[in-house]
């Protein structure tokens, strides 16, 4: 087995951690590969986690304390958290209040809340206001598939504009799960991505991260969307062997973030993707933390 070809700028303590982990990888493999991936230096920002309960089954880490423990154990230093409740609940204001409260009560600053806004609900503008002014959230998370609107909907354009004006980072969730295995009574169509680039271009100041989009968006279509504005993607649903390296052959490094989609997905999936791909010196650090840190710091 080959050791990780990636190299990092390390202080002595970090170097020893990685060296010990890498020695484990070379001896046999597997959880040591995981440990090596988790032990990389300079933090790990998971931009795609959710709190509360997935509507269709209990998950091993759907308790906030358990999720925090899982994230910490895997080296996560910050997690951008939405709420599963934001998918179907109509009382979005209490969803966001609970989310903010959970993030305060657990993790000692690990969890950063991203409130839900549904632009098809009456007076949704006040939900946006509360996210920014009451809960002091740095961003919001949108679920167009579950909330039933298209990307050429004027309400969506207005929401993006108001979010940009408030300096809120917008997380747009393309899908939550593989549509082939959805519950028969909860089949949610992935929104058509084609109109999205136009609305991004028409929204100055917008910072947009699209979650779970790499399952269906590749090549030129992905590039066009990234070039439409300040648009980012994360790796939770990226697939294919050596997927991260393949993605970076065609995608600007500074637009790729780390995301696990935990607790709906096993957290280890995203972490091991960084291990599986041979990456250059600067790539792991950019994906693990630097890109996300820069993006969050850009709040106008």
């Amino acid at each position: 087995m080959k050791p990780d070809q990636s190299t990092f700028s390390l202080d002595r303590r970090d170097f020893l951690k990685v060296a010990v982990a890498a020695a484990g990888v070379a001896s046999l493999g597997s959880t040591s590969a995981l440990q090596a991936a988790a032990a990389a230096p300079s933090g790990l920002i998971d931009t795609n986690v959710s709190l509360s309960r997935w509507p269709l089954r209990r998950l091993p880490c759907d308790d906030t304390a358990a999720l925090v423990a899982k994230l910490r154990a895997n080296g996560v230093t910050q997690a951008w958290a939405g709420s599963f409740d934001g998918l179907l609940h109509r009382d979005i204001a209490t969803v966001n209040t609970r989310l903010a409260d959970e993030c305060r009560r657990h993790g000692k600053g690990l969890l950063v809340p991203f409130g839900s806004v549904n632009p098809k609900l009456p007076d949704w503008e006040d939900d946006l206001r509360r996210c920014a002014e009451v809960h002091r959230m740095p961003g919001i998370r949108l679920h167009p598939g579950y909330h039933g609107y298209r990307f050429d909907d004027p309400d969506f354009a207005k929401l993006l504009r108001l979010a940009a004006e408030r300096g809120l980072l917008v997380q747009l969730v393309w899908i939550m799960e593989d549509r082939r295995m959805m519950h028969p009574l909860l089949q949610v169509e992935p929104p058509d991505l084609k109109p999205l680039a136009e609305v991004i271009k028409k929204t100055p100041g917008l910072r947009l991260e699209i979650l779970n989009v790499l399952k269906g968006l590749h090549g030129q279509s992905l590039l066009s969307l990234l070039h439409a504005g300040e648009v980012f993607v994360e790796i939770a649903m990226l697939e294919g062997v050596g997927g991260v390296a393949g993605l970076l052959e065609k995608t600007p490094l500074n637009r790729v973030l780390f995301g696990s989609h935990a607790p709906l997905f096993y957290f280890e999936s995203a972490l091991l993707k960084l291990k599986e791909s041979p990456l250059t010196e600067d790539q792991p650090r950019a994906i693990r933390c630097d890109n996300a840190r820069r993006l969050l710091a850009k709040k106008s």
Binding site: S30, T31, L34, P60, L238, E239, G240, V241, G242, G243, F265, Y266, F267, E268, S269, A270, L271, L272, K273, K275, E276
Partner: peptide
């Protein structure tokens, strides 16, 4: 693999309780 990553599938065991 190669349609899937090794990573996402290994995680089903590594991450399982």
């Amino acid at each position: 693999a190669g349609y899937r990553s090794f990573a996402s599938q290994l995680a089903k065991v590594h991450g399982a309780e």
